[in-house]
């Protein structure tokens, strides 16, 4: 999902270990078992048909995704000072340069803080609300729909909304605090270097939690009701039901949501770009915003490419770790 960014953003990993929907499960691990049976209907002559069926997707994907991935790798070993300049091979110079660039380290640390904050705030809120909302019957659809509304808004628009909420003089936050007598708590939410990363992360998490809530609700619906009856017979109270039935039943969804939230956190860009552009003093700079700055403003493409490789590796490592974890859970 796109989210991707846009949830829309596009969603990461294929998973077979998800709360299975009506019999169709797919994904990486299912592939291994399906491989032998899936093609059984096809004699060798079908290879050409397969090629033509794949051709449109492959052409686009090759030109606009695979080629740029390879080119980024190549670029990280070359020096280039802009889009219309020629590049020359410099070995690992860009990598050593990156290692000595304090802003690279800063943006890396910020990115980790950012994605941890996103997992805790957006993932945590999503879980809590799912637990509450799924207890409802008559008003469930209303609450589910209403809580999901922020997720429909583009992260860029979220940035504009929250930049205004945080506006020191006319913003919702400071004016509301003043009006209810908590004027002492008003702050320069986006100008205070110690606060800025947290403030922007709150905006991003406000947009993000809705999807996680939906996924948790779907997971809760898949927990076998008879398990609750079983512990109820043993006299379990609500808290014990949560600990012994609900949370274990959510393990697989939880690993999925955590990995999704981490990847979404890793890709965080729009809110920071719109609200602070990495400032003040690089205090909200993320890897992604630094890449943008290097690529399109200071035009240091070699260094930018190293950061691109770093970003990709982080995404790949997170994906692999969580796929393994999920595969183990589903055994």
């Amino acid at each position: 999902m796109a989210i991707r960014e846009t949830p829309g953003s596009k969603v990461m990993a294929p998973l077979s270990a998800a709360p299975a929907v009506a019999g169709h499960t797919g994904g990486i691990s299912a592939r291994m078992s399906k491989r032998r049976t899936a093609g059984s209907a096809s004699p060798d002559g079908d290879a050409r048909t397969a090629f033509w069926l794949m051709a449109p997707a492959l052409a686009l994907y090759g030109v606009f995704t695979l080629l740029p991935i390879a080119a980024t790798f190549w670029l990280s070993f070359n020096s280039s000072a802009g889009f219309n300049t020629s590049a020359s091979f410099v070995g690992v110079d860009n990598y050593t340069k990156a290692a000595h660039d304090p802003i690279v380290w800063k943006s890396l640390v910020h990115t980790f803080i950012w994605l941890a904050g996103h997992v805790v705030m957006a993932g945590g809120l999503g879980l809590l609300l799912a637990l509450a909302v799924s207890r409802l019957r008559t008003t469930q659809v209303f609450f589910r729909t209403a809580f999901f509304l922020p997720h429909l808004v583009s992260l860029a628009v979220v940035g504009v909304i929250w930049a205004n909420i945080y506006d020191p003089f006319f913003g919702l936050l400071n004016t509301a605090l003043t009006r209810i007598g908590l004027g002492a708590f008003t702050k320069g939410w986006l100008s205070d270097p110690a606060l800025v990363l947290f403030s922007v992360n709150v905006a991003s998490s406000w947009q993000g939690f809705g999807l996680y809530m939906l996924l948790f609700i779907a997971g809760l619906q898949n927990i076998d009701r008879s398990l609750y009856d079983a512990v109820e017979v043993d006299g379990a109270n609500a808290f014990q039901k949560l600990i012994y039935v609900t949370l274990p039943g959510l393990r697989e969804v939880m690993t999925f949501v955590v990995s999704l939230a981490m990847i979404n956190g890793l890709k965080g860009f729009a809110t920071v770009f719109v609200m602070t552009n990495g400032g003040p003093f690089y205090q909200s700079e993320l890897i992604t915003t630094y890449i943008y700055r290097l690529a399109f403003q200071s035009q240091d493409h070699g260094l930018a490419a190293v950061l691109c490789i770093l970003l990709s590796l982080l995404a790949i490592v997170i994906t692999i770790i969580f796929n393994r974890w999920r595969a183990r859970l589903s055994q």
Partner: peptide
């Protein structure tokens, strides 16, 4: 599916 689009933006 794994590599973020921000990581391939220059090429």
């Amino acid at each position: 599916l794994t590599v973020p689009v921000q990581a391939i933006v220059i090429p």
